[in-house]
Amino acid sequence: MNLFVNAFTHLDASLWCPEHGLTGASWWVDLELQGPQGDDGMILDFGEVKPWTKRAIDAGPDHTLLVPEHAEGVTVQTLPDERLCITTQTPYAMTVTGPAEAFTLLPVDRVTPEVIAQYLMAELNPKLPVPGQLTLALRAEPIEGAELHYSHGLRLHQGNCQRIAHGHRSRLHIWRDGQEAPEVAARLAARWNHAYLYDQADDVSPSLMGEAPSEPLTSLAYTAAQGLFELTLPTHVCHALPVQTTVENLADALAQQLHEIEPGHHWRVCLNEGIDKGACAQRSAS
């Protein structure tokens, strides 16, 4: 007999994708427990297993960069200071370094929800705090309308959001004068979809003299509580903001963009940060 809990937690991460490069993702995590019924009629104590499993996921792949070690052009190197350096070639060149706990290395050529679930079950079942067998499944939130997959890092955050390459799959809703404007939301979402969003203060790109490179690059670096993080990406996949790229600031930036383009309207922007959380910002008509 099995017990189940659907959507008992969320997993937010970035991953390296052969088609899109660095991209954000968010999934619900469903949990199933198998075991014999005890004298009390229960199989296992969910009150013990659920928080343990959530803590293990939060301390594992959540808010990391999911790296397919066997993907074409992907190289993983351990640096002398025990940080990891990930380099890629396809569909574009990227270099990212950071503490080892900021990455989840997967021995596959493509990251999928099934791969992550198998990885988690292999890690967690030998340590399960009660007798039984744990099964996990990851599934994407159904989204009707505009969505975007973005990656970022929050230098000032004290938790795992400080990791330079983590991300989210998010809803975007926009209202113009109280009426939802899905076409506007789709247009703005496309600008940031599969993009890296960063604070201009983290830009350490060198000043170039003479002939410009064929592929302009943006280099970012900062030291946060967990250590030194560095990232270099093609400039065309990066979007700078003058502030930290929290969901509050992202929603506010979109609202300001709309106000500048069409100042004669009242705009309301609601942007999710993954699943079931986010921020709203407004601008009034001039």
Rank of each mutant, 00 (worst) to 15 (best):
Q256C: 14
S151I: 02
L271N: 07
W267T: 09
I86A: 06
K54N: 09
I86C: 05
R191F: 07
R83Q: 14
G167E: 10
L22R: 04
S14T: 13
V108N: 00
L254P: 08
A190F: 04
L22T: 06
Y222W: 13
F8A: 12
R176N: 09
L15G: 03
V115D: 00
A201T: 12
F103R: 02
G73W: 12
Q179W: 03
H166V: 08
S205E: 10
N272C: 14
L66V: 01
A165F: 04
V76G: 03
T246E: 08
L220K: 03
Q179F: 01
W267L: 06
A100F: 00
E180N: 09
R187K: 13
P131E: 06
G41C: 10
G38M: 02
V243I: 11
E48P: 01
A255G: 06
V204N: 00
V108Q: 00
S219Y: 03
I116N: 00
G132C: 02
E82H: 14
A189N: 12
W52H: 08
V49Y: 01
L250M: 15
V5E: 14
S207W: 08
A185V: 13
A59C: 12
D40N: 15
P216T: 06
L228P: 03
E262Q: 12
E183A: 13
Y92P: 09
Q257R: 12
Q34T: 14
T218N: 05
P142L: 01
W52N: 09
G73V: 10
T135Q: 13
E141G: 04
A93I: 03
R55G: 11
L156C: 11
L138F: 00
E262P: 06
I164Q: 11
S286W: 14
Y196T: 09
P18A: 09
A165P: 02
A224G: 15
